[in-house]
Amino acid sequence: MSLMTTGKTDLDPAPLTVEDLKRMPDDGQRYELVDGRLDVSPAPVFAHSRVESRLTIHLGVIAPPEFEVVSTPGINVNADRTHHRVPDLAVIRADAEESPYLTKPPLLAVEIVSPESAIRDHHTKRQEYEEFGIPSYWIVNPDPALPSITELRLEDGGYREVTTVVGENVLKTDTPFPLSVVPHWLVALGNRRKHVGGSDEAAG
């Protein structure tokens, strides 16, 4: 007696969903999902955390009350909850809060590049955020010698690079609200509160 097979077995694992993330250890690593597969990033180093904190505080201080600046929000990128991303920072409308995770595109997503995340941030997440419909995406390079911010905006279904601002130059944009920020003061020692917004006035 012969057996006919299809090449598949019952041992094939089912796609993971966000419910499975609850079982992940609280070890400081970032757990994301890509098409039902786990995507794990190491805990951020101090330089990364410093940029994330400074940018979150700066944008939070200058954001109009109808906006909210959120650090590391979980976002379900598809309805099956098998694709889950955690940007370093996001801006949403205050009335768009969802729990436990966002399911609609934030107005802005920000990723701070680390050596192990460069391909993911510049290519993989760029495509995912583009397809999900996030209107604005920033890629921040925290290199102390040459920090930079690249601003991308969604136009006709694809991201267009608006500008890349380096060092002590000022990024000025009106998306998601009028703001300015100096990459240098996201990484440098000194009176960053006075200069991070590109002016001599305290920015928070």
Results as ranks from 00 to 15, higher is better:
Thr5Gln: 07
Lys194Tyr: 09
Glu98Ser: 12
Ser114Pro: 05
Leu16Tyr: 00
Thr150Ile: 08
Asp200Leu: 13
Asn76Val: 00
Trp138His: 04
Gly190Arg: 00
Ser148Arg: 01
Met4Gln: 09
Asp156Gln: 10
Leu171Lys: 03
Ser49Gln: 15
Ile57Cys: 10
Ser71Cys: 14
His195Asp: 02
Glu201Asp: 13
Asp27Lys: 09
Pro100Ser: 03
Val70Tyr: 03
Phe177Lys: 00
Thr82Asn: 05
Ala203Ile: 06
Ala203Thr: 12
Glu97Arg: 12
Arg54Leu: 15
Ser49Thr: 12
Phe46Tyr: 12
Leu179Gly: 03
Tyr129His: 06
Val196Ser: 06
His48Pro: 04
Thr163Gln: 13
Asn78Ser: 14
Ala47Met: 08
His84Trp: 12
Ile149His: 03
Glu128Met: 15
Pro105Ala: 14
Ser99Leu: 15
Ala94Ser: 15
Pro105Asn: 11
Leu154Phe: 05
Ala79Phe: 14
Pro73Thr: 12
Val113Gln: 04
Glu98Met: 13
Arg192Cys: 13
Leu59Asn: 02
Lys8Arg: 12
Pro135Ile: 06
Asp20His: 10
Leu38His: 02
Asp20Glu: 03
Pro15Leu: 02
Leu102Asn: 00
His195Gly: 04
Phe46Leu: 11
Glu168Lys: 06
Ala43Asn: 11
Pro105Glu: 12
Pro144Cys: 11
Leu3Pro: 01
Lys172Phe: 05
Ile62Cys: 08
Pro13Gln: 00
Arg81Met: 15
Gly7Tyr: 06
Leu11Val: 05
Ile57His: 13
Pro115Asp: 10
Arg93Lys: 14
Pro106Ser: 04
Pro87Arg: 06
Leu38Met: 07
Ala145Gly: 15
Ala43Arg: 14
Thr72Trp: 13
Arg160Tyr: 10
His123Gln: 09
Asp143Gln: 13
Leu186Lys: 06
Glu98Tyr: 08
Ile139Asp: 01
Ala96Lys: 10
Asp88Thr: 08
Ala96Trp: 07
Leu146Thr: 14
Val162Ala: 11
Arg85Ser: 07
Ala96Asn: 11
Tyr159Phe: 07
Pro135Leu: 09
Gly7Glu: 03
Gly157Asp: 06
Thr103Val: 07
Thr9His: 02
Thr17His: 02
Gly74Leu: 01
Pro183Val: 01
Pro100Cys: 03
Leu11Arg: 01
Glu168His: 08
Ala79Asp: 15
Pro65Ile: 14
Glu52Gln: 15
Leu146Gly: 14
Leu171Asn: 05
Ser117Tyr: 11
Arg126His: 13
Gly204Thr: 04
Trp185Gln: 00
Val165Lys: 01
Val45Gln: 09
Leu171Pro: 01
Arg193Pro: 02
Leu102Tyr: 11
Ile119Pro: 00
Tyr137Phe: 09
Val165Gln: 01
Gly28Gln: 11
Leu152Gly: 00
Arg37Asn: 09
Lys8Ala: 13
